[in-house]
Amino acid sequence: MPETGGMPETDSGVVIVDCGDSAVMARAMGSDAEHNWRLVHTLADAIDSVRLDGVHGIVPTYDALLVEFDCAGTDQHTVRRVLRHEADRLGKGPLHTATARHFVVPVVYGGEHGPDLPVVAEQLGITEQEVVELHSGSDLTVRCLGAPAGAPMMDGPAFPGPVPRLASPRTRVLPGSIAVAGRQAVICPMPSPGGWPLLGRTPLRVLDFAADPMTPYRPGDTFRFQPITPDQWDDHAGLSLAVSHG
C-alpha cells in the first residue's frame, strides 16, 4: 500500500515521511538524542552500501536522514521499503560505531579573526577568556556535514547558555572561521554568508579539493581547538586540516 506522510513508526522508532516526488526522510523518534544520531548515521551507511538504483543523495544529520532519488529510476515505495527493512534490522542489534579520529585545530581567538568574541562573552555573562577556555577546553564531536560546503557541525562547548544568532547576518564569512550558535559549533570551510557569531579563525585549509570526499572529517570524529597567538598564524597558514589529526 502506498504510504503518506506521518505513518506509524517501525519497531526501531523510525518514521518515514515524503519530501516531494524525489526524496523521503527517515526520522528517529526516540527520546535519546545520542541514539537517534547513531541510528540515522548507521542507516545512512546501510542505504549507501545497498547502492539502490536511482538513489543519488543521502543527508544524515541529528535525528533525520534525507534520501534523494530520481523518481524516473525508482520510486517512493521502493526507497521506503528498503529504509524500513534496514531500520528494522538495525533496531534489533547494536549500532555499529566507526572508529573516531581526533583533529587538533589551531585557532586565533578574538580580534579581526573573531570579531564577535566580546559580544558572545557579554551575552553569556562570562569573560572573553572564559569563552575561549570553554571552547578550547574539551573535545567537540562532529555530528554531521552540513551547509555550506560540508561544514563540520559540532555539539557546542559547555557554555552557560545558548548563543543567539546575529541579528544581521554577514554577507561574507572568511574560510576557516570558527563560529557558534545555539548549542552548536562549526568551522566555515569556504567563504559564504553566515549568521553565526564568530569567535576566531583557523589558518588551516579545511577542504582538500584533490581528495574524494573533500572533507577529511566524518560524523563521530572529534575536534579540539587550540588557542594560538596571531603571530603563530603563519606557522599553520595553508596547511591541510587533514594532517592535523592524531
Binding site: G20, I58, A64, L65, E68, C144
Partner: peptide
C-alpha cells in the same frame, strides 16, 4: 526550533 536536517531541492 527546528533541528538542522537535510532539505530536498524544491523545498
Amino acid at each position: 526550533e527546528v533541528l538542522s536536517r537535510g532539505v530536498p531541492v524544491g523545498a
